[in-house]
Write a protein that binds this DNA or RNA. Structure first.
Length: 446
RNA sequence: UCCUCGGUAGCUCAAUGGCAGAGCAUGCGGCUGUUAACCGCAGGGCUGUUGGUUCGAGUCCAACCCGAGGAGCCA
């Protein structure tokens, strides 16, 4: 038998004596009987220390005095016990030996309530808390599922540069960095580079951190966030939506299969997630505006009615996205946005130049946009006109235009924000909890 | 950048303009089934900063700093 076992595998060891190593997550006691909830990173289990069983009164007194987050190694017999709390739970360790590695005192994060500011000042410790543990384990599974699906479907993983000379979509929200004698910017997207990559590899994706210097203070924004960006040659807008819905469904189903205990810790309603299977509803921007205007007309609360006000040509605000997604029990595609409110590189709609072949995927339950994508412009002359119309420096895009000169094909791609996806699947309110060390407009430490 | 709310013990919060309080955490003592245990005792304060009004300011006024929620922008 291994020298120690993981708590997540504890059910396999019922009736056996095992050694666990970890940290005191919580402790209660009743005289000669002490209950330690031990965490080891894989789960939490209750360890029962009964003085006569330990047969060492000095050691027992030290155990009684152990503070939260003390590190220990415990040995004992695994017992099935319905009263035992924990994750997975239902088992406890009847302790016969305990080795105190370090007795910790005055751990600042107690089992009682704390404020946001305090918790994020102590984020390096906050990560040990059960909810954060569950969220970040689910995040790791989501990342894995994303890459697994793409790797299994013929996509090549490419790494795109983080230091870039110019913007893909507007310059106001870029982080500037010095680059020898020049000014460079932290990447907002790898998309333009992936458009070059598909002509070499057919289907590619990049996955890494991206940076937006938006002064946004909302539950949906981070200054540094992770985005996965697939790009596909010989792919039109309809095919892109087919890909997105398979991709998103796969991710959600993998989390349901592999992270049930973590979803339970978060008290996530899994029925809503089980429903995330193809097909997703697809509505045009025109139809979305009509639906929103109908909702607005029916709204009795004047304040909410004012917030829902929208005209053709406007971009959706978060109240609009929320109202729209509440009409469906699955993620919903909205396609064909006005060209004026989208980035320069999107293919115009045939016969309707005022709209473009763009599509956003809106998550249900008010979580908003999780994927943004489009069919890319494939004609070099129209692309040059679009770059000029957006006042972007043509000399920075010469290579990008070049891609349309040598075997241009219809191609499409999308970006999916990891943190928003994690927030949605976990059912939590704020994206700052979905990454270990969030960077926001008001926080860079720890 | 704008709107709203907040800043008091390590933490979460109380305190009609009139003695600075509680719970948790910490320390000591008690308890054989605890689940954010419980019981007893103890220590713990530049009330965000600066100025003003007042006999008297945690409380009222002004400016500033910090944070939260929302808007805009976005994934």
């Amino acid at each position: 038998m291994a020298d120690h076992v993981l708590i997540e595998h504890i059910a396999l060891y019922e009736g056996y004596e095992v050694t666990l190593q970890g940290w005191v997550y919580q402790k209660t006691g009743k005289g000669k009987l002490q209950f330690i909830r031990l965490r080891d990173g894989s789960g939490i289990i209750q360890c029962v220390v009964f003085r006569p069983n330990l047969n060492n009164d000095d050691l027992f007194n030290e155990v009684k005095a152990l503070g939260q987050e003390s590190s220990v190694r415990v040995t004992g017999k695994v017992k099935k016990e319905d009263r035992a709390p924990g994750t997975p739970g239902g088992y406890e360790l009847d302790v016969s030996q305990i080795e105190i590695i370090q007795a910790a005192h005055e751990y600042p994060i107690t089992p009682k309530e704390h404020g946001i500011e305090f918790l994020f000042d102590n984020r390096h410790l906050h990560l040990r808390s059960k909810q954060q543990w569950a969220v970040l384990r689910i995040r790791a599974t989501i990342k894995r599922a994303m890459q697994e699906w793409l790797d299994n479907n013929g996509y090549i993983n490419m790494d795109t540069p983080i230091i870039t000379p110019s913007a893909a979509e507007g310059t106001s929200n870029l982080f500037e960095v010095g680059y020898y004698d020049e000014t460079a910017y932290l990447a907002q997207t790898g998309q333009l580079y992936n458009e070059a990559n598909i002509f070499a590899f057919g289907r590619v994706y990049c996955f890494g951190p991206t940076f937006r210097a938006e002064k946004s203070k909302t539950r949906r924004h981070l200054s540094e966030f992770w985005m996965i960006e697939p790009e596909i040659a010989f792919c039109d807008l309809d095919q892109l939506m087919d890909i997105e819905e398979q991709f998103v469904s796969y991710i959600v189903q993998m989390v349901l299969t592999h992270r049930a205990p973590e979803l339970a810790v978060l008290e996530r309603d899994t029925a809503a997630l089980e429903n995330v299977q193809p097909q997703f509803p697809r509505i045009s921007y025109d139809e979305a505006i009509e639906r929103l205007q109908a909702l607005q007309a029916a709204e009795t609360d004047p304040e909410r009615a004012e917030m829902l006000k929208i005209e053709w040509g406007d971009d959706f605000g978060s109240p609009h996205e929320t109202a729209l997604t509440q009409q469906f029990d699955k993620p919903v595609f909205v396609y064909g946005y006005p060209t004026a409110i989208k980035a320069f590189y999107m293919e115009p709609w045939p016969g309707r130049p005022e709209i473009c072949k763009s599509v956003d995927l809106l998550a249900p339950e008010g979580y908003g946009e999780v994927c943004g994508g489009s069919e890319r412009m494939s004609d070099p002359d129209k692309l040059i006109d679009a770059i000029k119309a957006h006042d972007l420096p043509l000399e920075n895009y010469d290579w990008y235009v070049d891609l349309r000169k040598y075997g241009s094909v219809p191609h499409s791609g999308f970006g999916m924000g990891l943190e928003r996806t994690v927030a949605w699947i976990c059912g939590i309110q704020h994206v700052r909890q979905t990454i270990a060390f969030p960077r926001t407009v008001s926080r860079m430490r720890p």
